[in-house]
């Protein structure tokens, strides 16, 4: 279970997060929503070790995440996608996915230089895993193409495949539906449900597409001005006066 309590972050004197909290059950799909600038992406960046955290705690299955460097968070079983695509532009689709499988390998500098039979076996295995993943996410045709020339929707799929390659337990998706057409959103929804089902994944997503949020998630957490203002089922939060106020402004 993911438990975040009182997460606090400041940049200069500005508190970007103050008292953000969130819980997500194992194998659930949870959404984090809120108006623009509410601190959702900052929340993700803090969970994944990109920003230093000034207070509070975040645990995944009892493992403390606050204070870990980004690669430590990845080792703890978390994986993520980025709001504005963060692919490795000089690599092919398959190599992007293989790069995502970094944690599956063990070969270090010395072993890599010597390229022992064990290293080769390991490389073959990683490659096989990555090839299967590209198949599963529907990227087979573009597998050997450089990632930078692909359409936006395809690049988002590559990012999803890359995030799955490390065999995470908790997957964080930052606005997976942004920029997609509505058939693509429907496909995405099915894809998220499928991969969760097959892997027993826990999914946490930041999303503005309310249709997707309401149909995909059992729990929703709402943030505004860096703090959590409501938690509950989609129906509950929709009724919550604080949430209505956050989105529509206070009644005058």
């Amino acid at each position: 279970m993911l438990e975040v309590r009182d997460l606090t972050v400041q940049f200069g004197g500005v508190k970007a997060l103050s008292g953000a909290r969130l819980t997500a059950e194992r194998e659930s799909v949870t959404a984090l929503i809120g108006p623009n600038g509410a601190g959702k992406t900052t929340f993700f960046n803090c969970l994944t070790g990109l920003y230093p955290v000034h207070g509070g705690s975040a645990t995944w299955c009892g493992k403390q995440l606050v204070g870990l460097p980004a690669h430590g968070v990845a080792r703890a079983g978390l994986s993520r996608t980025f709001q504005n695509l963060a692919l490795f532009p000089s690599l092919t689709v398959l190599d992007n996915v293989i790069a995502g499988a970094h944690l599956l390998g063990r070969a270090g500098f010395a072993m890599g230089t010597l390229r022992t039979p064990r290293v080769r076996a390991e490389e073959r295995e990683t490659r096989r895993v990555a090839e299967e993943l590209t198949e599963e996410i529907g990227l087979r045709e573009v597998r050997d193409e450089p990632v930078s020339g692909l359409p936006y929707g395809t690049q988002k799929r590559v990012e999803l495949a890359r995030a799955l390659a490390s065999r995470p337990e908790l997957l964080l998706l930052d606005e997976p539906a942004a920029g997609l057409s509505s058939p693509e959103v429907a496909e995405l929804k099915q894809l998220i449900l499928d991969v969760r089902e097959r892997r027993g994944l826990t999914v946490l997503l930041v999303e503005h597409h309310m249709g997707l949020v309401m149909s995909l998630c059992r729990r929703v957490t709402v943030m505004n001005f860096g703090r959590t203002i409501a938690e509950g089922t989609p129906a509950e939060v929709q009724e919550d006066p604080a949430v209505v106020e956050a989105y529509l402004g206070a009644p005058t």
Binding site: T48, G49, L50, P69, A70, H71, V73, A74, R75, S79, R80, F82, A86, L87, F88, P89, S90, L91, A99, G100, H102, L103, R162, A163, A165, S166
Partner: peptide, 16 residues
């Protein structure tokens, strides 16, 4: 190469 191309993403993939 991932460190060169996108440092943040490299970290998120578990690359120290």
């Amino acid at each position: 190469v991932t460190v060169r191309d996108n440092e943040a993403a490299a970290g998120a993939m578990g690359v120290p």
